[in-house]
């Protein structure tokens, strides 16, 4: 049985890790989560990003958040990647399957996956 007591263990373990979170926000992955985004399938996209970032151990520096309607509903699900000192990258018509490559090549490797971006997808 899962109990609240297990959260005590997590809390104690996390105390040592708190310092790691200071760099959080250097990279931000933002998923459009308005009616248009949700209907187009944004929920699995966001959740897959969360799992991928957590599994790569990047949760201390990369945040995954949501926003409202970005205004290009026909391209939903839309994902924007913000990085300090760099131009914003907009990925469109996202699917959970595309997440792994973006995390690998863009978030870790620093090179946006051009073919998934708004300039390339039609």
């Amino acid at each position: 049985m899962k109990t609240l007591a297990e959260l005590v263990e997590i809390r104690d373990r996390m105390k040592e890790k708190v310092a790691l979170r200071e760099g959080l926000g250097d990279k931000r992955i933002v998923v459009g989560m308005a009616t248009c985004g949700i209907a187009a399938g944004a929920r699995p996209v966001l959740n897959t990003f969360v799992s991928a970032i957590n599994e790569s151990g990047l949760s201390g520096t990369v945040s995954v958040t949501q926003t409202g309607c970005i205004g290009i509903c026909q391209y939903e699900p839309v994902v924007e990647v913000f990085e300090k000192g760099k131009d914003k990258v907009t990925y469109v018509k996202m699917t959970a399957d595309k997440v792994a490559r973006i995390v690998e090549e863009h978030i870790k490797g620093g090179k946006p996956v051009k073919e998934f971006t708004i300039g390339e997808v039609k």
Partner: peptide, 16 residues
């Protein structure tokens, strides 16, 4: 209340 300062969106907490 149990977690104190540990945020709810900590990966381990979400897993829980």
């Amino acid at each position: 209340q149990v977690l104190g300062d540990v945020p709810l969106n900590t990966p381990e907490v979400l897993e829980w």
